[in-house]
Design a protein around this nucleic acid. Structure first.
Length: 427
RNA sequence: GGAGGGUUGGCAGAGCGGUAAUGCAGCGGCUUGCUAAGCCGUGACGGUUAAUUGCCGUCCACAGGUUCAAAUCCUGUACCCUCCGCCA
């Protein structure tokens, strides 16, 4: 959420953000400002009447009993008028509040303007892509012949996009997640096991609602299943005031993620790439309200994710996302895309964003700075590792000509095998 | 699932129909002087304003209701605690 006075004072800037993020269908800044002006004029009326009522009430309490009836009659009249104005005020306030939830944040100066993923900029490529000496299999072929995943029974039990990981596949997934957690512990982050079932206000607070409501599984008590641990982690200090000395807060957590993937019908339907349920290690940082510092952390968190891929020796590239391909609340976003040999292509595995105070205003997370002033914290988040998508990248990149998979060096301490061999008999 | 108690500023904690004590912390100021102490001021949010230590309004978990007036009375909801029951 933005400050309404910031919006009013930077009307053109915010309008451009709405345009560039292609959100003009959902919010009009002119209408928003008009609504706020109307709200203010009603507010003045209401406050005037409240002041009058308070004066009269105060008078009643100080006056002798026999003088009260006349004053009470007068106060009742004021009250009746006040009720009318208050009704209008409540109505317009709720319309205004609703509109404010749809205002996006303003992208950073160095974010490219673009319509869709074609506007994203490749920042750099890391790791060497080996020229394959044989035709690489995709992760589905590998997974089935090695009996480390079962998609048929996955859809039988879980429906569309359902899956089982099996044998070494299930173990290797845990190995990747533990490896990612250990890296974050090494960076001094606090590990949290988080709520997966969360109240709607925190989806709104982190900016997933109202835009992404359709992509979430809603429960019968109106709570929803998290699509990422970011929701729980970023909301951890909601409604609280921190000390400047507590910052930066560095959190990470491992959780399942639930996504309906409504906008992706027919996309990536094969294998364990795009799923309704997956596991993810996520990192979240809260910092002081300082643009330079938050950008430093943005890069640092990118590095943490890169270290996961570098440790696994997977080729990847860094993308700077354009305005049309970033979330409404995000100020700047990098994606990491990891190499998938079977597709001869890089595919998204990580997403690194900063928000300034967009989330903290919605969540009401403040800190007292060294001058004693209250300010909203700045928030950031990034993937550390998401499986099974990253598992798919690992098995594709580590496949051998005989159809076996070599276990990456860094994962070996988490499993009791170095290689996954094709199974003779698969049931 | 049942019964009872609770939720007040950053923290602790009074108030139980007449408009939020007090202590601690933080911040600002003054004073004395040296491994620090004392005194004074200071809750949050919004409006008004060129700006304000000014003025007005709102806020005692949240949402309603009663009243001239609600932290205080009534109803509903959420969460916490205690006991009983059930349970991995």
């Amino acid at each position: 959420m933005l400050d309404i006075n910031f919006i009013k004072n930077n009307k053109d800037l915010v309008k451009k953000a709405v345009e560039d993020k292609q959100l003009s269908k959902t919010i009009s800044i002119d209408k928003l400002i008009e609504t706020h002006d109307l709200y203010l004029s009603l507010l003045k009326k209401v406050e005037l009447h409240r002041a009058l009522r308070n004066k009269l009430s105060e008078g009643i309490s100080k006056v002798a009993a026999e003088d009260r009836p006349k004053l009470i009659t007068e106060a009742t009249a004021v009250k009746e008028e006040l009720i009318k104005f208050e009704k209008d005020l409540t109505e317009i306030k709720s319309i205004f509040d609703q509109m404010m939830l749809w205002v996006p944040s303003v992208p950073a100066d160095d974010v490219p303007v673009g319509q869709d993923e074609s506007g994203n900029k490749v920042v750099r490529e890391e790791g060497s892509i080996k020229e394959p000496s044989f035709k690489p299999k995709d992760h589905v072929d590998l997974g089935l012949s090695l009996d480390i995943m079962d998609l048929e029974r996955g859809t039988k039990i879980g429906g569309f996009r359902g899956y089982f990981l099996k044998n070494e596949g299930a173990q290797l997934e845990q190995a990747i997640l533990r490896y990612a957690c250990d890296l974050m512990l090494g960076e001094g982050y606090t590990m949290l096991s988080v709520p997966w079932i969360v109240k709607p206000e925190f989806f709104t607070g982190t900016g997933y609602f109202p835009w992404g409501e359709d992509d979430h599984y809603r429960l019968e008590d109106d709570k929803a299943l998290i699509g990422t641990a970011e929701v729980s982690l970023t909301s951890y200090y909601a409604g609280e005031v921190l000390n400047e000395s507590d910052l930066p807060v560095k959190l990470f957590g491992l959780s399942p993620c639930f996504r309906k993937e409504v906008g992706a019908y027919g996309k990536d339907t094969k294998g364990i790439f795009r799923l309704h349920q997956f596991n993810k290690v996520e990192q979240v940082v809260l910092t002081t309200a300082n643009e330079e510092l938050t950008r430093e952390w943005h890069d640092k968190m990118l590095n943490h994710a890169e270290n996961v891929l570098k440790g696994l020796n997977l080729p990847y590239r860094v993308l700077l996302m354009c305005t049309g391909d970033m979330g409404a609340g995000q100020v700047k976003k990098y994606d990491l895309e990891t190499w998938f040999p079977s597709q001869s292509n890089y595919r998204e595995t990580h997403s690194d964003s900063y928000f300034r105070d967009f989330q903290s205003r919605r969540l009401n997370i403040k800190y007292r700075d060294s001058a004693g002033e209250l300010k909203y914290v700045y928030t950031l988040n990034n993937t550390v590792a998401a499986t099974p998508r990253l598992l798919a990248a690992v098995i594709e990149n580590y496949q051998n000509v005989d159809g076996s998979i070599t276990v990456p060096e860094v994962l070996r301490k988490y499993v009791n095998f170095d290689k996954i061999l094709p199974k003779q008999k698969i049931i």
